[in-house]
Design a protein around this nucleic acid. Structure first.
Lengths: 363, 363
DNA sequence: ATTAGCACTCGGATAAAGAGAGTGCCAACA
DNA sequence: TGTTGGCACTCTCTTTATCCGAGTGCTAAT
């Protein structure tokens, strides 16, 4: 789809103006803003062609133009100049990220909050781990009726559980179980913890009190919880900043979908894509019905050890793609670096590959 | 403030009708709905008096009446019949609570989500623990450069941290530290962990590698994190259900305040109040400017062991106080019971004391 | 190929008119 | 004295009509 250089300039100017104002853009405005020395009449001709090419549309006969999803797509793929954050901006993001990551706690929530603050759109963060296994079991004997199970996972997180028993156990027994679990339950995934395995362990431990199954249940719980993708969304209320969501019903519908944990990406695509890649889904390119007239920008990161994550931002199709992409990119790279993922940090630039999705609008 | 029986009935009918419809209520509507056999003209006279008493107001001369905050207050304090959930409803809430509490994880978040779902208003949950101390230290030696700190707190939660060191330590050293911490750092609160204490421990342990301060820092972090009130809010988007928040600016302002973790209660009042008490703050009774024309219903619970919590719901002053209070009450009581707080469960009724706040509207 | 000019269209803002709901008050009544 | 029907009045909301202007598409001139 080759279009003239001037058309490109006009389209870019129009999209940017529309992103800024949220009002249909007319020929005169473009004639002034875009630095090409020609009159509004010329622009009108060009606009007319761009419209028939499917990049623009008119809300009604006598209004300015508005980009179609295909128009945005063209903008994102070819026109938009990748915004490069200033060193200060990048620094600031990194600083805030550091601050957030200091407390081990609620990383994913914090990151999503941060992304939302930075972009002023609702943001979500997902992580998934594949093939998590237990690396090590420890059982701390507290008293005759109490012990603490501590497991260290292959991704270097540590989980624990306090167990109270109605009956007494002796320390020896606990130690025996601990070593049995360390030999039998480490290095395997949750679906490999079969009733068979549990049974044989129980017999080997000479356990008549059901301790084995308690511990095994915890192992399964921990493993499956770690493997399950976790997600967090925040800043839904920022949607209300956007004029296209002044209609409370619309806003509510989308916000409900988002806070209900609705899928953003088709599950099978969720975690593909390398480190720092940015994906943009424009309007109807989204799979979820609720997102059909919104856009999503997603950055992937790789935290190593089979852990991948996404940070995404949701907004109207009239989104400031360029700024959002730049910011998410810094975030994603920072996360990869910090969480110990691959270290292929780009020399210094924030330019990332854009995975193009759904650009087959006009063939 | 004694008002006639009939006035009370009329006021109650009006408030309930307004809660239902969100439209100013006229004399005719009341004449029909309230079962008192008198004509709309009579009602009009009564309404007029109720208005001059300050319980009602008119949006404009020729509209129906709307309750003032004082009117709601009167309704909540004296008129509203405490709604008693049916056994099934109570059961259902309890079942859902059980389900949520199964996974240890994110209790406070889950509870707030549940409250929001049940009431269809935004809900928030807070907990605070006072005087948390460490009950027990364990340090698990993983390898020469790695160990896991496990601390068990006075509230029976267990926290851990994985520590990687650039240098090697030997197992003996770790054991010595463990026992030193167990004797020196247990049973004290975070502000009692002084540099002095850390120094003397360091010397006693003959620790030249700074392990002591790492462990002490973790102890402080854990203690202060446990003592700090944590809060969670969810369902902000449900505000948009309410006609009074059809104005996106209003909605956004409040939602922003809520998700920004704004204070609901004046800090000094936060956690007073016994188990299952319900507090209602109507409109201007709220301290936060952003809440001045919203209402808040709050249930307190006591999870024992110096742990207190709140579950609250935010909505327009035209809130279904009675239903909300009933539901929160079940939730709060369920939480107390489950989290091991006091067991003074009311015989079976859901009737709770209402702490009256700010009922000095008409003296 | 570009531009100025002009008729035309259509949505949004503004104003006027009408409808309806509800009040307040008065006079009649139990 | 308390209650009721009646009625004029008020005020908002809705509808209808009108106007204005931004922006287009087309044509003719450059």
């Amino acid at each position: 789809m080759a279009i003239s250089e001037r058309k490109k300039k006009i389209l870019a100017a129009l999209v940017e103006e529309y992103i800024r104002t949220a009002e249909p853009v007319g020929s005169k405005a473009i004639a002034q803003s875009a630095g090409l020395g020609c009159s509004s009449a010329t622009i009108r001709n060009e606009l007319s062609e761009l419209t028939s090419l499917g990049f623009l549309e008119q809300p009604h006969t006598s209004a300015g133009r508005v980009p179609t999803p295909a128009g945005y797509r063209m903008y994102v793929n070819e026109l938009m100049q990748r915004q490069k954050l200033s060193l200060e901006e990048t620094e600031e993001i990194n600083a805030r990220m550091n601050q957030k990551l200091q407390q081990l706690d609620d990383t994913i929530g914090d990151i999503s909050r941060l992304a939302s603050q930075l972009t002023d759109y609702p943001a979500l963060a997902l992580t998934t781990r594949t093939a998590v296994t237990i690396r090590r079991f420890d059982i701390i004997y507290v008293d005759a009726n109490t012990f603490i199970i501590v497991v260290m996972l292959s991704d270097n997180t540590v989980k624990n559980k306090l167990v109270h028993l109605p009956i007494s156990v002796d320390q020896k027994q606990v130690q025996r179980l601990s070593s049995l679990f360390n030999s039998g339950f480490t290095g395997i995934t949750d679906d490999q913890i079969t009733p068979l395995l549990i049974n044989s362990t129980e017999r080997a431990a000479d356990d008549t009190m059901g301790l084995t199954s308690v511990i095994a249940a915890f192992a399964i719980e921990v493993l499956s919880a770690s493997a399950a993708p976790s997600s967090f969304i925040s800043g839904e209320n920022r949607l209300l900043h956007q004029p296209e969501f002044r209609d409370p019903d619309k806003a509510h519908k989308l916000m409900g979908y988002l806070s209900g944990g609705g899928y953003i990406l088709p599950p099978e695509n969720d975690f593909v894509g390398g480190n720092g890649d940015i994906r943009v889904l424009i309007g109807p390119e989204n799979v979820a019905e609720e997102l059909k007239d919104s856009s999503v920008v997603i950055a992937s990161y790789d935290a190593g050890d089979n852990t991948k994550g996404l940070i995404g931002v949701v907004g109207p199709t009239r989104m400031d793609y360029s700024a959002v992409a730049a910011k998410l990119s810094v975030l994603a790279q920072g996360l990869s670096r910090r969480l110990g993922g691959s270290t292929e940090a780009p020399p210094e630039g924030m330019h990332n590959k854009l995975i193009i999705k759904g650009d087959n609008f006009n063939e």
